[in-house]
Amino acid sequence: MKARLVQNGQFTIVEDVAETLIPPENGFYWIDASAEDLELLQSLFHLHDLAVEDCLSEEEQRPKIELYDSHYFIVINSIRFDDEEIFLRGLNMFLGKHFIITVTRQRINEIRTLKPILWDEEVNSPDRFLYHLVDLVVDNYINVGDRIENKIEKLEEDILMHTKKSHLNEIIGLRSEILWLKKMLGPQKDLVGTLHKKELRLINNQLQKYFGDIYENAVKIAETFDTYRDLMGNLREAYQSSLSNRANEIMRVFTALTTIFMPLTFITGIYGMNFDYLPGINFPGAEYIVIGGMILVGLSMFYLFRKKDWL
């Protein structure tokens, strides 16, 4: 657990977390904690039992905001995409009048990225800290969405050029990830909408207007992932169509080869019969004439099929 006094974007480490109970003359306290620190923090800040229980739960929490007398409890999901799987990491926050507590189980990149922004913007209140952190989280969804779109386009190109059985597993896997993520985007959009529209005494009225931009981005993200879900359906249809076309191409080649060999089989069939006399059987070099004729017939039919674009 790290406790910091934030004054105009500048950090001062606080050694004794109990000092954060007293509001500072300037700035606010930011406590970056883990689940193991909640027992101490709950007794100090009187955090609500249900909020603490949600933080300690192993189950994945949906984005939400809970309003209590002395603080707000906010849950939002950070996203990470490693080109194979989408990961959501819960970011729990307790917002008070002079403090904000962030509780995470894994490392959240947005918290690391946030520090220089606090410095540049000279952030001096916990609600502005919350605004910039939520903004970073939502923006990261846009970045992940762009990467998913690129992956879909590349997968579509690969399917059209060289269809493989492994492509179906990729389509199913990515589609299930998108559908799973869609379930979280709705509540996350509602959370940002609440921060923007609802009157909240711990968030400055002027600052709430800025949450409107984040809300618009959250709506766009939800709509974008709706589009990705439809694209994955189209991609599966393209995969099935590509397999059918490939099978048709193979059958066309086999049919053409069978057709070419039909007259050759007819000729060899005649001269393979056990008759005492066949036309030209005693003619010198007859076998070369027959073989040459068979080659000529085969090449002629091959040329005809190529000319008609059947091969």
Results as ranks from 00 to 15, higher is better:
Ile117Gly: 05
Glu39Lys: 14
Leu185Ser: 02
Gly233Ile: 10
Phe81Thr: 01
Val75His: 02
Ile270Thr: 02
Lys182His: 08
Asn205Arg: 14
Ile172Cys: 10
Gly285Pro: 02
Glu36His: 09
Leu133Val: 07
Arg147Asn: 04
Ser244Arg: 10
Thr227Leu: 03
Asp230Phe: 01
Asn109Glu: 12
Asn150Val: 01
Thr104Trp: 02
Leu56Gly: 11
Arg112Lys: 14
Val17Glu: 06
Val290Ile: 14
Thr163Met: 09
Met184Pro: 02
Arg89Ala: 12
Asp226Lys: 00
Ala35Leu: 08
Glu36Leu: 09
His167Lys: 05
Arg306Cys: 10
Trp30Pro: 05
Leu304Asp: 13
Ile108Phe: 03
Asp309Lys: 15
Phe11Glu: 13
Thr194Asp: 07
Leu264Ala: 05
Ile31Arg: 06
Ser176Val: 10
Gly193Gln: 07
Asp32Ser: 09
Gly233Met: 10
Leu38Ala: 04
Leu311Ile: 12
Trp30Lys: 07
Ile152Cys: 00
Ala286His: 07
His196Gln: 08
Gly27Asn: 04
Glu223Asp: 09
Tyr271Met: 02
Met251Trp: 11
Pro263Leu: 03
Leu235Ile: 06
Ile250Glu: 08
Tyr303Gly: 13
Phe266Arg: 06
Phe261Ser: 06
Asp83Thr: 12
Arg62Gln: 11
Val144Trp: 00
Tyr228Ala: 00
Asn140Gln: 05
Lys307Glu: 04
Ser70Ala: 15
Val253Ala: 12
Arg112Asn: 12
Gln206Tyr: 09
Leu231Phe: 07
Leu114Pro: 01
Gln208Ser: 12
Leu202Thr: 01
Ile281Cys: 06
Leu168Ala: 13
Gln42Val: 07
Ile74Lys: 01
Arg147Cys: 00
Asn77Ile: 03
His71Tyr: 00
Thr20Asp: 04
His48Ala: 02
Ile214Val: 14
Asp127Leu: 00
Val6Phe: 06
Ser300Thr: 15
Asp49Arg: 14
Tyr239Thr: 06
Gln7Leu: 07
Thr268Gln: 05
Arg306Gln: 12
Gly269Phe: 05
Phe28Cys: 02
Leu264Cys: 06
Leu296Tyr: 07
Phe261Leu: 09
Phe99Arg: 00
Asp226His: 00
Lys154Leu: 08
Glu19Asn: 13
Leu50Arg: 10
Ser57Pro: 09
Val103Ser: 03
Glu149Gly: 00
Ile142Met: 06
Asp49Ser: 13
Val14Ser: 10
His132Leu: 09
Val297Ile: 15
Ile101Gly: 04
Pro279Cys: 03
Leu235Trp: 05
Val52Ala: 05
Ile111Thr: 06
Thr259Val: 09
Leu235Pro: 04
His196Tyr: 13
